[in-house]
Amino acid sequence: MNALLDRLMGRGNTTPSAKVAKERLQFVLVHDRLDLSPDKLEAMKDEILSVISKYVRIDRNNVDISIEQRQRDNWLVADIPLSPEDEEDADEAEADGKKSGK
């Protein structure tokens, strides 16, 4: 019955499969092209972040580091928000920086 309703209403809430295919392809091709597995990419991100946190306090929850395709070139694009310094005291920031990185 639900399937029939979906069909009558258009396609209901399911994502059209072409959109899923496109997203999956874009993801897999980045890793194919660079010969960089998702695991390695995560490890690289963690390392980058721990280097940066040695110097400045960063807001880890809102970090966005990803590989972007521009024509047939790939770019590593990083958005790394810094935490406001005045809320924290400098010693604590340093200690946090050392802890970070899994």
Binding site: R11, A18, K19, K22, L25, R72
Partner: peptide, 19 residues
């Protein structure tokens, strides 16, 4: 199928492959 969103369109494929 393209019209129903169930097959990649030529624009999708061109976007992905960028040629």
């Amino acid at each position: 199928m393209v019209r129903r969103g169930e097959m990649l369109s030529m624009d999708d494929v061109v976007d992905i492959l960028a040629i």
